[in-house]
Design a protein around this nucleic acid. Structure first.
Lengths: 217, 217
DNA sequence: GAATAACTGTTGCAAATGCCACAATATCCT
DNA sequence: AGGATATTGTGGCATTTGCAACAGTTATTC
């Protein structure tokens, strides 16, 4: 299924209608900056990443921090998508410089009387984006549910090979560092490297560093 | 945050509008029946669980089956929320007898010209339900990311204690069997039982079978 | 109400994997 | 350009955890 980006789907000119209808707050962030943390309480805003690249992490009470989701251009994120739990803190940080739109949540769930033509369309786009987020999260769960490092890595690479652009030899570069990948798959990095090495020795995959090729599946 | 059920939020009389506007297909299922499996391709429908209780599982290529999500009354599910991957098959089965509404996906993403009054409201409810699904999934990921069985169990019980009704002594009953819980947390059941026993010995939790009480946190 | 199936609970043992410490390489920054 | 930093890659060792096998209890079914 083709990913439907809100900017693709509504186009530049309709973007003006979002701005008029929702009057979103817009802010730029530098790489490394914290965009927001999720606190308990009623959600106030929905955020859209207009440009750049960010990451959603959880911080547990022992101070460990885990990579939940990478947020790319056009993705939605924010409080309405995460359960506020006292044991966990959700943190969104900018990986690169980012531009973020902050939409008023009330405006989404309680459309005002003066409905502009595009309001309904915008909401339906938000629904699609929320559904896409579920896709990404359920993929992540599927990977975490694989019960060996081998299966996690193979499943991830199988997925990555289906979405990453390949060169003429069939090699692709995964969109995160191996450090982040081990975090994302929730496995020890050195153990993952060991498994990757074995997969290469067995001829199931090939490549070096972040570049891979899946030889069988 | 209070869970907003589509039936709560729009009420019985407005339900008629969904039926008029969306003309959903409605079907009953018996306990154990397969409601649907996700196949590759464009999503055609969004499903709403009108009554009963179901489960979303993934089946990997080795034939292992894992519990991703329990679907309760008022939850949305279906193809738009899951990435179709060749390595995984998504299966939704009825735990109890269920009634399911099948909404036309096109009708959501491409509102027809004859917009009824409630269409926009229904879409916004669907958005909220999709956001809730993300909450449930990100909670699941948070639990799976805990790197010991102990933390997984404690985190789950901490969450469960915040949503389950408690008796006067502070005990609550988790909404799934311990077999399902070990599956949900992706740990070996016997290892989980061992850990639960130790947590009881250490005085961190109390209870027996599915009934628990969190003594510290 | 008996028979059958599910679930809960326990233990020994082997192995996968996490943890640690380090080397080599690539990338970033001024 | 060169130093600092992040990333990739390797190996030894301890231990958590998975696996298998079983007993006791509760729930379901006919």
């Amino acid at each position: 299924m083709e990913k439907r980006n809100i900017f693709d789907s509504i186009g530049e000119e309709a973007m003006a209608h979002i701005l008029t209808c929702f009057k979103p707050y817009r802010r730029d962030f530098l790489a490394g900056e914290t965009i927001l943390t999720y606190e308990a309480g009623e959600p106030k805003r929905v955020e859209i990443l207009e440009s750049g690249c960010a990451r959603l992490q959880i911080l547990n009470e022992d101070g460990d921090i885990f990579l939940i989701e990478r947020i790319m251009q056009g993705d939605v994120f924010g409080e309405p998508f995460a359960l506020p739990l006292d044991r966990f803190v959700y943190v969104v940080t900018a990986e690169t410089s980012c531009r973020v739109l902050f939409l008023d949540y009330d405006h989404i769930i309680r459309p005002c009387a003066k409905l502009c033509d595009h309001h309904s369309r915008i909401i339906s786009d938000l629904f699609i984006m929320a559904a896409q987020k579920s896709q990404v999260l359920s993929l992540h769960i599927s990977l975490l549910h694989q019960n060996t490092i081998r299966r996690k890595v193979l499943s991830y690479l199988s997925y990555a090979s289906s979405i990453c652009p390949k060169n003429k030899d069939g090699y692709f570069t995964i969109p995160m560092s191996l450090v982040d990948l081990s975090d994302y798959l929730n496995v020890d990095r050195s153990a993952m490297m060991r498994e990757i090495r074995q997969l290469k020795e067995e001829g199931l995959i090939d490549g070096s560093r972040r570049e891979f090729k899946v030889l069988t599946h």
